[in-house]
Amino acid sequence: MNDLNRQAIANYKNDFLREVEERVEDGDWVRMCMQCGVCAGSCPLGNAWEHTPQKLFMMIRAGKREEVLSSDSMWMCTSCYNCIVRCPRKLPITHIMHGLAHYAHKLNMAPKGQPTRDIAKLFWDNLVKTGRVNELKFSLAMYFKDGFMQGIRNALAMQAVGMGLVKAKRLNPMEILGGHKCKDQGGIHRMIAKARAIEAHKKG
């Protein structure tokens, strides 16, 4: 359990709804859900989820903190915006899903090994380093995220595709040596630090 989590538990005791309202982006909308189920029925990936948005909102009201934050459901959202368009109460459901995922991640309660979460994390780390996405390093990091041997197997399986990309000049093998960067790398880092500070100030 990380510090942020310990602090949130101490702060909100059993009032998980209030915690979500105050700490999760767009979380203050959760109380306005009227449990009609239109979001659950509209989600194209609905049957791949353990909990539909309707259920997640009900669980938040019922104080099921552990279950909500460790759910992988909000990680499955593809941002198709069907639910937002259809919600009769105009809840920004997609945004709430991302807000919940982000909050769970910050508290380190999100499910371990959840592929969407892993990719998002690799992508973010890759991007903020230089201000540019290094596709070669990102691909390799993906291949090797489940261990060295698995990485080799993944790379061999993708060999033909990789060679094709190199021939078509869509992939530069030299990127492995650092790769291209944006002009003001320090500026990017300062911007991200500032954004983090603002976010921390706004939510909890």
């Binding site: 709804l17 109380r31 306005m32 009227m34 449990q35 009900m58 009201r61 019922a62 109460r89």
Partner: peptide, 14 residues
């Protein structure tokens, strides 16, 4: 009226 109650923080449990 229902929406107003939700806004005031009344919890509705089905």
């Amino acid at each position: 009226f229902y929406r107003s109650a939700q806004d005031k923080g009344v919890i509705f449990t089905k």
